[in-house]
Design a protein around this nucleic acid. Structure first.
Lengths: 129, 129
DNA sequence: CTACTTGTTATATAAGTTATAGAACAAATG
DNA sequence: CATTTGTTCTATAACTTATATAACAAGTAG
C-alpha cells in the first residue's frame, strides 16, 4: 500500500492517513487480516510523530475498521456498519452532493462520477468457481 | 428558509451554516437573487456572534455562491464551478464513498442513496410551457 | 444632508484542536 | 529475558474556533 502525506496541506495529517487507509480498504488493496505498519514505523517513514499515526489508528479502531493488538499491531477487520452509521453517512453525503449541485455540476454527471468511483472500489471478494 | 444550528456539536458553527445554505441552494429553496439575512440578524437569531456568521458568508462568497453588498446584504448567485472544483470535489467524494464501502454498505445501495439525494435536489428551474 | 443599516476591518481573549516531544508502562513474541 | 508493539501521561507551541468590542465604509431612506 502506498500512502501519501501532505504535511503542509489543510487536511490534518491523521485525517489524511485515516482517509487513505479507508480508501485502500474500499479498493481491496487492504483486505480482512491485512497488517498495517507499526505506528512508530509509519511515523518514521513520513518523518512525523508516532502520536499522529496513533490518532489515525485510534479513529479507524473506533470505526471498527481495524483491530489493535500488542505486538501484532494493527489488523484490518471488515465489519458491517453499526446502526447510527448509515444515517450519519447519508447526512454527510447530502451535504457533499448539495455542494456539487449548488456549484452547477449537472446532477447526472455527479451521479455518473459516483458510479465510476464505486465501480473502482468494488473488489471481487468472491472466487469465480 | 429554516436553519438549524447545534451549538454543542462537533461541526463548527460557521460550517453548519455554510452547509445548510449550500443545501438550501441545491434544494431550490434559495435561488439566484434570494437574499440572506443580515449577519447581525442571523447571529441574533441563534444567539451567536456575528463574526461567526460572517465567516460562513465569507466561505460562501469565496466559493462563488453568494455576493455581498453593503446595505443590500448577501445575495445568492448561481455560478458554474471553476476548473479546480470538479476534481477537488471528486477527491472528496472518493473518500466519502470509500468510507461507506469500507464499512460494509453495499455499493448498489450507496449509489441508490446518492440518486435519491440528487433527485431531492433537482429543482425545476425551467418553466413548463 | 443626516441617520440608519449593512458589510468590512482590527484587536484581544479564551477554549479547543493539531502536532510534536519525551517518558514510562503493559503485554505478547521470539 | 529482551524486544517490539500498543497504551497512557505530561508538556508545549501553533493554529482554529468563537466571542467581544470598537471603529470604519458605503449604500439607502427619510
Amino acid at each position: 500500500m502506498i500512502l501519501n502525506v501532505d504535511l503542509s496541506g489543510e487536511v490534518p495529517i491523521y485525517q489524511q492517513l485515516r482517509d487513505q487507509i479507508v480508501e485502500a480498504i474500499a479498493e481491496g488493496v487492504l483486505i480482512e487480516g491485512s497488517l498495517l505498519p507499526a505506528t512508530r514505523t509509519l511515523a518514521a517513514d513520513f518523518g512525523i510523530n508516532f502520536h499522529t499515526v496513533n490518532k489515525a489508528y485510534d479513529l479507524l479502531r473506533r470505526q471498527g475498521l481495524i483491530r489493535l493488538n500488542r505486538k501484532t499491531g494493527a489488523v484490518v477487520t471488515t465489519t458491517v456498519a453499526a446502526p447510527p452509521f448509515p444515517s450519519e453517512w447519508t447526512a454527510r453525503a447530502r451535504t457533499l452532493l448539495a455542494e456539487a449541485v449548488a456549484r452547477g455540476l449537472p446532477a447526472d454527471e455527479v451521479l455518473t462520477t459516483c458510479r465510476s468511483l464505486l465501480d473502482s472500489f468494488v473488489t471481487p471478494r468472491e472466487d469465480t468457481p
